[in-house]
Amino acid sequence: MPATPPEKILKELADLWVATSKQEGAEAAQGVLRACSMTLIVIAEDRDDPSAMGETIAALMPEHPARTIVVRLTGDGDRSIGQRVFAQCWTPFGQRRQICCEQIEITCSDASLADVPSVVLPLEVPDLPVILWCRSPRLLDMAEFRPLARMGWRVLVDSGAMPDARTALRHLADEGSRGTLLGDLAWTRLTRWRQILAQIFEDPRNTSSLAGPARITVSDAGVVTTRALYMAAWMAGALDSAGVGATVEVRTRAAQTFAEIACGAFRARLEREDGHLSATVNGLSQCTLLPKPDDYLLLREELGISGRDPVFEKTLASAARFAYATDE
């Protein structure tokens, strides 16, 4: 029997709602409105800045109201689980009634990780999507990851935070092939880049320029990164779907971060320059802001997807193949 019975948490939640309604009801006859469109499970290390994470979750709630269950990993320690419940409330502009979402915080040691699903599963809101956001990179290598991942309809990770890109992609592709619906924030960070590249090919003159074999070059400042492999795999996949074969080069430890397609005389290049993204097509450049996406923006995009993400799934599979192929 787990140390913290879920019934106790559910009772605390019910009491919380009664107390919140009474408190708000006294202040404004409008009372509170309970909103929930999903269960969001966040697994994070205890050292993970709680206030920053709390701000991210609070910012997400108006757009993705959820019962949020934060599981904090304390590392070593006894086989024990602690918990507390509270509500996140806000008043929409121009309205009197407060909207509130539930938040449950569970702390557990590595030793009690295996007990977490038995506590969390009864707390999931029935019939609504369950998204699991795994912020702990080390968890992916642990045996407990799979039972935890099974709690979610969709599992979000950040391969950019993992020490080795190739290993990360293999793990993710393996997990994906077992039927887990995955999202990767390293992929989400590429959305703006991909969108700008797609915009270049909204012009039929540019699409018709892709007539022969193409060459894709992706260059990144660090060692091999999952984002570079994703970008290269996505570009190659898109060209392949249009019947254009391409050779791919992924450069690492480069001075510049860019992605380029060359095909005969046609050349399209995206390059990051001081908070901007420049798109150059056949020598003509256009610049757009490229703000660094924070967790809120990344999660906001990912929580909008509760089912399959075919483009990512295809790209992950082919990026993992790249990772094998480029293994040293």
Partner: peptide, 20 residues
């Protein structure tokens, strides 16, 4: 190459208005 944009990702990209 067919007229469709192979780089589209309708799940994530907003619908955009063409030059006009």
């Amino acid at each position: 190459m067919p007229g469709e944009n192979p780089f589209q990702d309708p799940l994530r990209f907003e619908r955009r208005i063409p030059p006009c």
